[in-house]
Simulated assay, not measured.
Amino acid sequence: MGGTEHLTVEREGATLVLTLNRPEAKNALSLSLLVGLYDGWLEADADDTIRSVVLTGAGGTFCAGMDLKALAGDGMAGEHHRERLREDPDLHWKAMLRHHRPRKPVIAAVEGHCVAGGTEMLQGTDIRVAGESAVFGLYEVRRGLFPIGGSTVRLPRQIPRTHALEMLLTGRPYSAQEAAGIGLVGRVVPDGTALDAALETAERINACGPLAVEAVKASVYETAAMSEQEGLAAELERGWPVFDTADAKEGARAFAEKRRPRFRRE
């Protein structure tokens, strides 16, 4: 497993846990964090024993976004990783899931602040659990900045446009309950339990057929911008091959024999 000084990588069964680990800076983005995060996404996709990914933050905070001190000219932490960015100028965007989509389900476990770049990165995850004291928001306009991590495109597609525009144009904070009310997160749990709740969800996913899970996720995103007619046709192309897999037959046998299925990605 990889990881850097600002990104911890651990295994919990079939789940890869990526932890933003710069608590002294509220997990603000650094080169070390971004490089570790991108490598984590690649590791999850390359290893077929990994069936899900949980993204969380250390120290009771998810991510406070861009390091404003670095932006002001003090230098971004993790400069020794600069060569990785020169080799792949898009690495930071892919790390933040702006235009990189892991094929495995990604579950966000949010405690504390998840603002600016944190809220932008959140939009690249699939399932989102938040502690009741979590705070969300896109603060960029308050600093004269633009939320260039994808929010002007993705947020209005994920929550009602009126809520998206209010969040984008006011830069105000949102409580976990309010974020759940507008659909930005799916579930609010007691403080300190978001990671446990995310891991429980991951375990449920891990118990399902991995080929089916990955095909379902791919279909949801592939058809999002299609007409209903186009989407239904694309769904058949993606879904029918799943029925011909050994895993599909195993699922039916396990149901008939009243036992847990033993999926093999075949």
Results as ranks from 00 to 15, higher is better:
A194F: 06
A194M: 08
L195N: 12
L195F: 12
L195Y: 09
L195S: 10
D196R: 15
D196M: 06
A197E: 15
A197S: 15
A198P: 09
L199H: 13
L199Y: 11
L199T: 06
E200A: 15
T201V: 15
A202W: 08
A202C: 09
A202K: 11
E203W: 07
E203G: 12
E203F: 02
R204C: 05
R204P: 02
R204T: 12
I205S: 07
I205A: 06
I205D: 05
I205H: 05
N206D: 14
N206M: 00
A207G: 07
A207Y: 01
C208F: 05
C208V: 03
C208M: 13
G209E: 08
G209A: 07
G209V: 01
P210G: 00
P210F: 00
P210M: 01
P210D: 02
A212S: 02
A212C: 04
A212R: 00
E214V: 04
A215W: 03
A215Q: 04
V216G: 00
V216I: 12
K217C: 05
K217T: 01
A218F: 09
S219F: 06
V220D: 04
V220F: 12
V220K: 04
V220A: 09
V220P: 02
Y221C: 02
T223Q: 13
T223A: 13
T223N: 10
T223F: 04
T223R: 11
A224Q: 11
A225W: 11
A225Y: 10
M226Y: 14
M226C: 14
M226I: 08
M226Q: 15
S227F: 06
S227T: 15
E228A: 15
E228I: 12
E228P: 03
E228V: 14
Q229V: 13
Q229P: 00
E230Y: 10
G231V: 05
G231P: 08
G231T: 05
L232A: 06
L232P: 03
A233I: 06
A233S: 07
A233W: 03
A233R: 13
A234Y: 11
